[in-house]
């Protein structure tokens, strides 16, 4: 299996505070890697380094073996799509949201809007709807379609279902996993929901206080965590504050 993303010794400090501390791991091509950990672990910060919404203060990230610092930042961001917790759709129609990415670089959509809508489980009529008038679940579907319109190779998912109600959350979760499998996308999925991480991912990385504690195949990680911290975290025995004090 080829390595799609390789994170080597990543550190990130903001105003003297260390948010990420020498994090290294690799993401195999076409796999979904769940990033779990208590809040303040640096999961979202880590994700934002992959498409250079922020830069690390130390270490390097490689995409297909190339240091992302040497790539054109816009080209990188088109190759690495992102779905946030909040869909943050732009004012206008659903269709204009989906076409946003390709239009930026002066391109037309590679496929008709209806096809993108179908892919995210929305009817063709949604194209002309006002984006601000959709339900939370529908908005997140449009946000996913908007990211897919750039034909990304990697998808960064920052708690994409945690702002949704339970029903919509499950549907969007299923949808994202289907889309990833269908396109063979490599994905990094930040989640605070351990059951979700088990359902969606091939591999899991546990982070606490900016450090990688443990990583492994999702099934074996959840069945037999090796480190004491991972065992305590999965058992819910140790509170977040105590973990952060480690």
């Amino acid at each position: 299996m080829d390595i799609k993303l390789n994170l080597q010794n990543i550190s990130k400090a903001v105003n003297g505070k260390l948010l990420l501390n020498h994090v290294s791991f690799a993401v195999p091509e076409g796999r979904i890697v769940a990033i779990i950990g208590p809040s303040g672990a640096g999961k979202s910060t880590l994700l934002s380094l992959i498409n250079r919404l922020q830069d690390p203060t130390g270490g390097a990230i490689y995409l297909d073996g190339t240091n992302i610092q040497t790539l054109d930042v816009f080209a990188l961001r088109r190759r690495v799509g992102m779905v946030f917790q909040q869909p943050a759709l732009f004012p206008g129609t659903v269709a204009s949201n989906i076409a946003f990415g390709p239009h930026l670089s002066g391109h037309e959509l590679t496929r008709p809007v209806a096809e993108f809508l179908r892919e995210v489980g929305l009817a063709e009529e949604f194209a002309k709807r006002d984006a601000s008038r959709l339900s939370g679940g529908e908005q997140q579907r449009v946000a996913l379609a908007r990211a897919l319109a750039n034909n990304p190779e990697v998808l960064l998912l920052d708690e994409p279902t945690s702002a949704l109600d339970l029903g919509a959350a499950h549907q969007v979760e299923d949808l994202i996993t289907q889309v990833c499998k269908h396109h063979g996308l490599t994905a990094m999925w930040v989640s605070h929901d351990l059951e979700q991480a088990q359902r969606v991912s091939d591999r899991t990385v546990l982070m606490v206080s900016g450090r990688k504690i443990e990583e492994g195949n999702t099934a074996s990680f959840f069945a037999q965590p090796k480190t004491e911290i991972a065992q305590a975290f999965l058992a819910g025995e140790i509170g977040v504050s105590k973990l952060q004090g480690e």
Partner: peptide
């Protein structure tokens, strides 16, 4: 902020 980050993540320049 969220909208601007989404646009940047889609490949927009800071101006766009």
């Amino acid at each position: 902020r969220a909208e601007i980050l989404s646009a940047l993540a889609l490949g927009a320049t800071s101006r766009q």
